[in-house]
Design a protein around this nucleic acid. Structure first.
Lengths: 208, 208
DNA sequence: ACCAGTATCAGCCAAAAGGTGGAGAGACCA
DNA sequence: TGGTCTCTCCACCTTTTGGCTGATACTGGT
């Protein structure tokens, strides 16, 4: 059989060379291109027509990973995209899967896990790191906690530290509406104060 | 001249191999050992006696990077430690420099920057990525913003989303005292509400 | 001995946030 | 068409927060 061609997308030089070295040890996997940004990724995917795109979500500047995935899925639907990132934030996982990612690996994944994901991806199998899978599972299990788009927007602004009045101005809605949304958000997040909402929101959105 | 020996410490396999590949291109730099945790780092430093230790701060489990730096500085003071990490949080930078780090690089640093840091470190020069340097500079320029230990403790609990009453109970002080501390914290952080304080606190402590 | 910094507490008042209950409009789906 | 979801808004009331002023006490350094 012919070997699996892969394009790497990551703005960290060291991560790219690390992955390249790692994947290079496998006879059936060949890195055919690299990119340091979303824009470059689209180019590289077009030019090299790889079987798999291994992509970091956090790109320093320009198009972010999620947007890049969407574009890739549109332009070259046959290429499988695997997310390879440092953090397992709920929002990122859901958005990546939504955008059409075939797998979701964390950077501390064991080499074998990475190889398995690449090989699985070309066969249409989706592979994800254990912590990622459990997060995703929780999301599905608990649909009550899913915020509406408007609520999510509000919550995101909330984490900037804005007051109700400011939130209203920013979103062109009355303070009353802001309070209504907030009440719903608190209920869904299981908190009672905006302080706690901010805390859980920020922690859910990354790190940990 | 003899080449500079380096030990790499990072819990991500790909980052280690990437760095190794990158440093391997330089004739005067040789990677003599690797470690995936703080504990392993101490061992490797002892065993290989490198000139430079390149270390990530975030280690999945066990001893964290800061603690590892402190121990290294004590045991093998001649070895220069360079921090090589993803994020430039104020707290991490200050603590790392405090612990005795000779340099502070971000993972998106250009290869040349990394080489320069390694070469500089053995000569006693400290090299840090531009964003890191500017952060550090701000810290020094603005001593007003340094929180007292008690205030920092309060702020940290604040980010859990506690109310003033709860904060008082947790710290065994009256609500009045809590309010006093909070007022001071707000002034130092340059915010007016607890929501904004939480937001800036969490963002300063990492990510972004 | 004095001063600066820190930590503790109080009271008062205005502003902001949260709780409750209700309501209309548009979208979407069965 | 009827039901559900989402977004929008309102009024009333209680609780929480923040701003202000002032006070005591312990510490460490000059």
């Amino acid at each position: 059989m012919t070997s699996i061609s892969v394009v790497l997308v990551d703005d960290h030089t060291v991560v790219r060379s690390g992955l390249k070295a790692l994947l290079g040890t496998q006879a059936d996997i060949a890195v055919v291109g690299e990119a340091a940004s979303g824009e470059e990724a689209l180019e590289a995917a077009q030019q090299h027509a790889p079987d798999v795109v291994l992509m970091d979500l956090a790109m320093g500047t320009g198009m972010d990973g999620i947007e890049a995935i969407k574009q890739l899925r549109q332009r070259t639907p046959k290429q499988a995209v695997i997310v390879f990132t440092t953090y397992d934030s709920d929002a990122d996982i859901v958005r990546a899967v939504d955008a059409g990612a075939m797998g979701y690996l964390l950077k501390d994944a064991a080499p074998e896990e990475i190889f398995a994901a690449v090989r699985g991806a070309v066969q249409g199998k989706s592979v994800m790191s254990a912590p990622v899978a459990s997060r995703l599972f929780q999301q599905l299990r608990n649909p009550d906690e899913i915020l509406t788009p408007r609520e999510a927007e509000l919550l995101s602004l909330l984490t900037e530290g804005l007051s109700n009045r400011d939130l209203g101005k920013r979103l062109f809605i009355s303070e009353a509406t802001v309070k209504t949304h907030l009440a719903h958000i608190y209920a869904k997040l299981g908190v009672e104060t905006r302080a706690a909402a901010i805390a859980t929101a920020i922690r859910r959105e990354g790190m940990r």
